[in-house]
Design a protein around this nucleic acid. Structure first.
Length: 374
DNA sequence: GTCCGGTGTC
DNA sequence: GACACCGGAC
């Protein structure tokens, strides 16, 4: 179990009563007050909304929330429901682990807490689907518990106002943000308006792009605003260089036919046909392949018949979401075709559109029709 | 197309 | 600490 100090710690140097006061005052005047899960202290409703609002916008949640509540008015109703019903009602919201955790959580609240959500954020955070931030939000809205939230919106507000450098996904940066979140909590009063105010600021004014600083109650104390860096804070996730891989592909030709190979069901281009590869592996480390060894290509081509001529084509690059693939194509013209190896078949070039090929392979074969390019 | 995100898991 | 989850914002 997490230690209590983790939730109530903070730092005197970071304390600033005027901060929470500004947020609370703004929330009462300009914040959101009429969302369906507001104006209630029913922890079940608060919890349901907070889980739905993880990774999901208010607009998307509204109709789902109403339907859930209509079908499952209390946590006992939800706990007693078949999981298929819960999943069916969640369908379309995404992140289906949330739905499974939601159901499991409802069952535990009934079994372990008599159907009443605990008011202690530490206990709440021990329930499935409820982390530190969500626990604090539920406790604050349902029970007025003085606890700090730190979701993506709040991270953005803090990073900008206080000029917090570094990517918030990094542990030391996140720890620093939690320290501020704890230190900036209001005193004994106003935790609900303060918590809601931080959420509202992040969602409506302090947006990722084009923040409405002119309407922000924190503008005069905002470091990002003062230094013109709202578009640089919070620091974006560093994107790691995408790996580069290579594949030697053979365009094995016999008259008007090309040899195709069925790819495995899983992995890239799963279930499609493609061109035969060297070693039967696409995606070798880019550095491990050079184009210098046409001999290998000749030898590899011999797998398919009597080789008449081998020529290298210009390499092409295909970009996937997670890596860059350099395709090194060789044309292998056969004097006489051998028996097609298992998983291979000869295909008339004239009907190549019907073969079900990945687009870079399709382009490669199409380019053969324009020899002027080579 | 790219970026983003609470929690759970590895 | 890295990643998966999945849909929305841009």
């Amino acid at each position: 179990m997490k230690r209590l100090t983790e939730f109530v710690a903070g730092s005197r140097e970071l304390a600033d009563p005027a901060f929470s006061q500004a947020v609370v005052t703004w929330q009462k005047q300009h914040g959101r007050h009429t969302l369906p899960w507001q104006n209630t202290r029913d922890a079940y409703r608060v919890w349901l909304s907070e889980i739905m609002l993880q990774q999901t916008t208010v607009a998307a949640v509204l109709s789902y929330y109403e339907r859930f509540l209509a079908r499952f008015p209390t946590v006992r109703d939800l706990a007693a429901a078949p999981s298929e019903d819960v999943m069916a009602l969640w369908a379309g919201l995404g992140y289906y682990t949330r739905a499974r955790n939601l159901h499991a959580c409802a069952k535990r609240v009934v079994a372990e807490y008599g159907g009443e959500f605990p008011s202690d954020p530490v206990l709440l955070a021990g329930l499935p689907g409820i982390g530190r931030s969500t626990a604090a939000a539920i406790a604050a809205f349902s029970y007025g518990t003085r606890a700090a939230i730190l979701d993506g919106n709040v991270k953005r507000v803090f990073a900008r106002v206080f000029g917090v450098e570094g990517y918030p996904g990094e542990k030391k940066v996140e720890d620093a943000l939690w320290l501020r979140a704890e230190a900036l909590l209001p005193g004994d009063d106003g935790i609900e308006a303060y918590t809601q105010g931080l959420m509202d600021l992040g969602a409506t004014l302090c947006t990722r792009s084009s923040p409405a600083c002119e309407r922000c109650p924190l503008a005069e104390r905002c470091i990002a605003r003062a230094t013109g860096r709202t578009d640089e804070l919070p620091v974006r996730k560093p994107k790691k260089a995408q790996p580069e891989k290579s594949a030697v592909l053979f365009v094995v030709l016999d008259g008007g036919d090309v040899l195709l190979e069925q790819r495995p069901e899983s992995g890239i281009w799963g279930g499609l046909q493609s061109l035969p590869e060297m070693d039967g592996h696409v995606a070798l480390d880019h550095d491990s392949i050079t184009r210098s060894d046409g001999d290998i290509a000749v030898a590899a081509g011999a797998r398919f018949g009597a080789v008449e001529e081998v020529s290298a084509l210009l390499p092409l690059v295909h970009v996937f979401t997670h890596y860059k693939l350099h395709i090194l194509p060789y044309v292998v013209r056969l004097a006489q075709r051998g028996e097609a190896p298992a998983g291979h078949q000869w295909w008339p070039l004239a009907r190549i559109d019907e073969a079900g090929l990945p687009s870079p392979v399709r382009k490669l074969l199409a380019s053969l029709a324009k020899p002027s390019l080579f």
